[in-house]
Nucleic acid binder design. Sequence first.
DNA 1: AATCTACAAATTGTATACAATTTGTGCAAA
DNA 2: TTTGCACAAATTGTATACAATTTGTAGATT
Lengths: 243, 243
Amino acid sequence: MHFQPYDDHSSQDSPSPTSAVDRKPLHRQVSRILRHRILHAEHAPGSKLNESKLAQELDVSRTPLREALLQLQQEGFLTAEPGKGFSVAELSSREVRELFAIIAALEIKALEWGGIPNEQTMMQLSEINFRLGTVDDDVELALSMNAEWHRTLVSGCPNRQLVKMIEELRAKVYRYEYYYYTAGAARVGTSVELHRDIMQPLAHADLQAACAAVTLHWLTDLDLMLPQILQKDRSLSAPAVVS
Amino acid sequence: MHFQPYDDHSSQDSPSPTSAVDRKPLHRQVSRILRHRILHAEHAPGSKLNESKLAQELDVSRTPLREALLQLQQEGFLTAEPGKGFSVAELSSREVRELFAIIAALEIKALEWGGIPNEQTMMQLSEINFRLGTVDDDVELALSMNAEWHRTLVSGCPNRQLVKMIEELRAKVYRYEYYYYTAGAARVGTSVELHRDIMQPLAHADLQAACAAVTLHWLTDLDLMLPQILQKDRSLSAPAVVS
DNA sequence: AATCTACAAATTGTATACAATTTGTGCAAA
DNA sequence: TTTGCACAAATTGTATACAATTTGTAGATT
C-alpha cells in the first residue's frame, strides 16, 4: 500500500480533498484493527505473530505494522522478546484479579471526585442499562454497552487523567470479559442488576453506598469469571508433572 | 549505526559472545535516553523534534528513533500531530494536580493491600530517607532517592499491576519535580520530614494514620510546586490579549 | 535411534529510499 | 505594506532493502 490517507472509516462520503483534520497514520489504524482482533480472541493467546505475513494480510508494510505492534505491547496485549518477535499476551487469573481490584478502586475514586452524577447522567445510566437488558446473544454489543455504562458512570470525574486510565484498564478487562461471555455461560442479567444496585444509592445521593455497590459489582464479576479463566490457566500452566 | 548489540551499559566487561539474554533493541535504548532528557528538561516543553537531526545526533536511523518517539508519546512525554511530527509535551498545572491526586490514591491502595511493611522494608525506608537528608545540591540524586523511597514504600503490595502503574505515574511526576527543584527553591528537608511522618505511624502499625500522612505528603508537595508551575503556565497560556 | 553439527531458510532488527505533505520563500497584485 | 499564490525545500509517513540472528533440517557421529 502506498500512502493513501483515505481508507479510513472516518472519511465520510463527502468529497472533501484531503481535509487534513481526519488524517490518521496507518499505524493507528493497524493498532486499532489488531487490538480489536486480540480483544475478540481472533488471535489466540500465546500465539506468535509473523510480521511479514501479517503485514501482507493487512496490506501494509512492516514499518507501520511494527509501530502498531510496539504500541500494543506497551498496552499489555502483546509480549515481545528481542530477536523472537511478538506474541499475544496470555490470559492469567492473576492479572484479571489485579485488574479488577484496581479498576474498582479507581471507579470509586472517580465517583468520589465527581460527586453524585447530575440528572442527565443518571438518565443516561438507566437508559443504557435498560438497553443492555434487552440485548441478547450479541456478545460484542452487550460488552460495548456495558463499557458505555461504566464510561458514563465516571464521566463526571473532573480528573481527566484518571478517566483515561480507567478507560485503558477497561480495554484490558474487556478481553477477559469477552472470553467469559463466549466460552462460559454468561448472563447480561447479572450485570444489569448490579448496575441497578449502583444507581439506586446514587439516586438517593448516597455516595458511600454506591461505592460499596461498585466494589460488590467487580467482586461478583470476578467470582463469576475466575472459574473460566482458571480452567484456561490450568490447561497451559500445569505442564505434565507426571513421572 | 549498524546492528551492534554491544553498546549498552548492561554488557559487563566479561567477554561473553552475544549472550543473547541482555540484548536490547535500539529503540529501547533510544527511548531511555530521550526519556531521561525530557525528564531533565534537556528538551524544552513544547519544542518540536526533528527526526532526521535527532537520528543523526543519536547515531541511529529514523526507524528505531520513531519507534522510541511513539513509545514516549504513549507515555505522555511527547505529543504528535499527523504530518507535523512530535513535540515535547507541555507542563501544565492541571496535569500535575491530577497526577498527584491519582498517585496519592494509588500509593494508599498499595499500602492497604500490602499491609504494614515488614521489618526489612522499614529499615530500608529509614535508611534511604536518612541518605536523602544528606544529599545536597545534586537534584538528580535527590530525586532518584526520593523515587526509591516511594518505590520501597509500596514494594509490599502484591498487586504487581498496581505497582507498575504507580511506577509509570512516578516518572511523569518526576518531570514536574525536577522542574520545581531546579527552577524553584526546593528543599529536600521537607520531603525527609514528610517521609518520617509516614514512617512513624507505620512503625506503630497504624495504617490509617500512615495513609493520611501519604495524602498530606502529596498535598504539601503540590502546594509547594504549584506556584512554580503556575508561573510557567501563565507565561505561555496567556498569549498577549492586547488587541 | 539419539545427539551433534553445519548449513540453509525464515524471521527479526535496522538502515535507506521513496511518496506525500507541510513549511518556507520570493514575487506579483491589491 | 499587506495579501495571495506558485514553487522549492524541508519534514513526515510509508515502503523496501539489507544485516544479524533465530529456527529448521539433513547428514555425520556415537
